[in-house]
């Protein structure tokens, strides 16, 4: 049996897009003593979900990830050259990386390309820990709690600057919860290459378009396949059941028992 701390941490980890504060309220009501043990879970959630933060003293929104964390609980932003604690205490930050130029040009192209497909998104480009590659990240959120749905799109790519090859993943989460709880989650690994910042960003947009088209097709496959195969809209006879006569349906006696499929 998992410890209480592990249980409430797992609730935080699996909170739907835009609903972390609701989940925390529920945890407070259920297990108030466990709330103070949640700090590591919050950090992990923020870094995995690319939580966005408004830079103190600026209108700039930046994201938080494991790629732009500094060891003292602060994060850095390459575009504004700032380091920050989540929501307070901004300081200037100088990027120390052999890929500083690549970071800058990718940031420019990727930001421009993002506005072409995402009505609202936050991007970040960071050299990774060992300076061996460059992380290109995007998060787009759309929350509509008054209509009981929330959604999040995350793109994560790692560029290997020596070979100009990129590996990455797209993840999309949607939650709908009007008198129910419906969750869509999907992920797709991506591999591509490009010889310049513009070229890489173009390939990313192409791969994301392709994924989104495939995802739309997958919805149709499920609607036309699995879903239809579970329960018919009407019986084969195209007639609703005549419950008054149901005792007389031959079928009733013929189907017998023991069918398990």
């Amino acid at each position: 049996m998992a410890s209480k701390g592990a249980t409430v941490s797992s609730f935080v980890q699996s909170a739907p897009p835009g609903e972390l504060s609701n989940v925390v309220e529920d945890i407070k009501a259920l297990a108030p003593n466990e709330v103070r043990s949640l700090e590591p879970a919050f950090k992990k959630y923020n870094e995995e979900q690319y939580s966005t933060v408004k830079l103190p003293g600026s209108s700039e929104v930046v994201l938080v990830s494991s790629y732009n964390t500094l060891n003292d609980g602060r994060y850095f932003d390459t575009a504004s050259q700032t380091s920050f604690e989540t929501a307070s205490n901004a300081q200037s930050y100088t990027l120390d990386s052999s890929h500083a130029d690549t970071v800058r040009s990718l940031l420019k192209s990727f930001s421009a390309a993002a506005t072409e497909h995402f009505p609202s998104s936050t991007v970040g480009v960071y050299p990774t820990d060992s300076d061996s590659s460059v992380a290109i990240l995007l998060v787009a959120n759309k929350y509509s709690p008054q209509n009981f749905w929330n959604g999040r799109w995350r793109s994560s790519y790692l560029l290997n600057p020596t070979g100009n090859s990129v590996t990455g993943a797209i993840k999309v989460d949607v939650h709908y919860y009007e008198d129910g709880n419906v969750r869509m989650s999907t992920s797709k690994k991506v591999e591509l290459s490009g010889s310049s910042a513009d070229g890489i960003v173009r390939e990313i947009a192409k791969a994301e378009n392709k994924f989104q088209e495939e995802l739309n097709r997958a919805f149709s496959t499920l609607a036309e396949g699995s879903f239809k195969g579970l329960r018919r809209q009407l019986p084969v006879t195209r007639q609703r059941v005549e419950w008054e006569k149901i005792a007389g349906y031959r079928l009733g006696q013929d189907i017998g028992g023991g069918r398990s499929k």
Binding site: Y176, G180, R183, M184, S185, T186, S187, F211, E214, A218
Partner: peptide, 8 residues
Amino acid sequence: VDNLELAG
């Protein structure tokens, strides 16, 4: 699509 889950 590597993985699509629609559950609820």
